[in-house]
Design a protein around this nucleic acid. Sequence first.
DNA 1: TGGCATTTGTTCCTATTTTCACAAAGTATA
DNA 2: TATACTTTGTGAAAATAGGAACAAATGCCA
Lengths: 216, 216
Amino acid sequence: MPKSKICIRKICFSVETVKRLSLYLRDLRKLAKKKIQFISSNKITQLLNISPAQFRKDLSYFGEFGKRGVGYEVEKLIKKLEEILGINKEWRIAVVGVGRLGSALLRFEGFSKFNIKIKTAFDIDKKKIGKVINGIKIEDVGNLERVIKKEKIKLSLICTPPQVAQDITNRLVSAGIRGILNFAPVALKVANNVFISNVDMACELEQLIFLLNNER
Amino acid sequence: MPKSKICIRKICFSVETVKRLSLYLRDLRKLAKKKIQFISSNKITQLLNISPAQFRKDLSYFGEFGKRGVGYEVEKLIKKLEEILGINKEWRIAVVGVGRLGSALLRFEGFSKFNIKIKTAFDIDKKKIGKVINGIKIEDVGNLERVIKKEKIKLSLICTPPQVAQDITNRLVSAGIRGILNFAPVALKVANNVFISNVDMACELEQLIFLLNNER
DNA sequence: TGGCATTTGTTCCTATTTTCACAAAGTATA
DNA sequence: TATACTTTGTGAAAATAGGAACAAATGCCA
C-alpha cells in the first residue's frame, strides 16, 4: 500500500511529519515551562533523536516560523503548531468499551491538556451502564448512533474486544464518526474518508522481542 | 536520524518489516481458527491493507515459506513466524508504575497468549506495594534493580509519570533491561544496544485531529 | 559600519522502501 | 502428456523519505 500522503494546497508531506509535529509540540511545552524563550532546531532535536534538518523541513511545509541567526520563539511556535494540528479548539470524543483499558482512558488526565474532552462512553454490560466515571456517564451501546449524532462527535476510541470492533466501527461511521483510535488488535476496514490510527501493544512488544532475539 | 535497520547475515530489512510480521501472524492465527489450511499472499493482504508483493518480500528476508501455485500453509507459516519473531519461547517482563494504565496492563490477558508473562510490577506508592493484581505482586520500586537482576528480566513496560520515566529507564538499563515499551509521553535516552518502542496516545490522537481538520 | 558567528529555509543528492513485473514452479484438467 | 491457470520469489524500477550543504538573514561586538 502507498504510505498515506497528505496534500494541502499543492504541498505534500507524510503522516510521519504530522506525528513529529506532535513530538515537537510536546517538547516545546516543556521548554516554555522552563521559561526558555528561544530554541534552535539543533537544540530541540537533540532531545528527540531527530535531525535538525528534519525539524526545519517539517515546519517548512506550513510556513516560516523561525528567525535566522536566532532560532524559534518557543511560545509563538507552540501557538502555530497547535493551530496547524487543529488542537487550538476543543475536540469531543467518544469511548466505546469500558473494560480495563477503556476505564483507564476515561480517567486519563492527559487528554484534557490537549483540548480533547471525552464526552461519552458506551458499553454493553448492564452493570456498567448508567455509572459515571470521572464525570462521564456510561451509555448503553444500543444508543450509540443516537448519542453520537446528537452530540455531533467526530472522533472515537475503540477499546472493545476484537470480535466486535468491526461492527462497532461500522456503526460509528454510519453515525458520523470520521476518526478512530483503535486499541483492538484487528485491522479495521473503513471507507477512505475515515481515518484510523492503531495502537497495538502486542505488535510493539513482538517487535522488541524480535530485536532482543536477533542481536549481533 | 537514520531509520533503524536490521541486518542478519548480510540480509537487511527495516523494523517496519518486523511490525508487519506481527500483523501477518495475527491474521494467520485467525485463519487457523477458521480451519483454513492454505492462503495466498493476495487473500491475506486484502484483510490488512498491505500489498501482496510487500507480504512476499517481507517473508523473503527470512526464507521461502510458500508453494508456487498454491500459497502458504497457514499452520506452518504461523510456526515459522513465531520462530522468526522469537515468541516460541516465554518472555518474562516487568511493569513499572501501577497507575490506571499499569494496572489495566497487569490484568490484560492479551499478553499470555503470545508467550509474554508479566513477572513483576513496581510502584512507589506504599499503599500499592505488597498488593497482588492478577497474581502479580507489586514490589517497592526501591527494589527494582535487585528484583530485575535476580529474575533476569530483559523487557519492561514503563507506565510511570513522564517526569520520572528517564530515571526509571536508567535504572532498568543498569539492571540489565534491554527492551522497553514506553507509555510515558517523553523521548527516552538510552545507549544504542537498548531498544525502545513508544506508545503515545496523545500523538496518535493529534494526528487524527490534524487529518480531520485538513480534509479536502 | 564591517566583519564574524549563528541559524534558518531550501535545494539537491542519497538512501531506503515499496511496487512492478516476470520467470520459475506448482496445480488441474482433459 | 500437454495446456491453461495460479502463485511464489525476486531483480529492477519507481516512489518516498532523509540529510548534507549552502545562500540568505539576523545578531553581536569591536
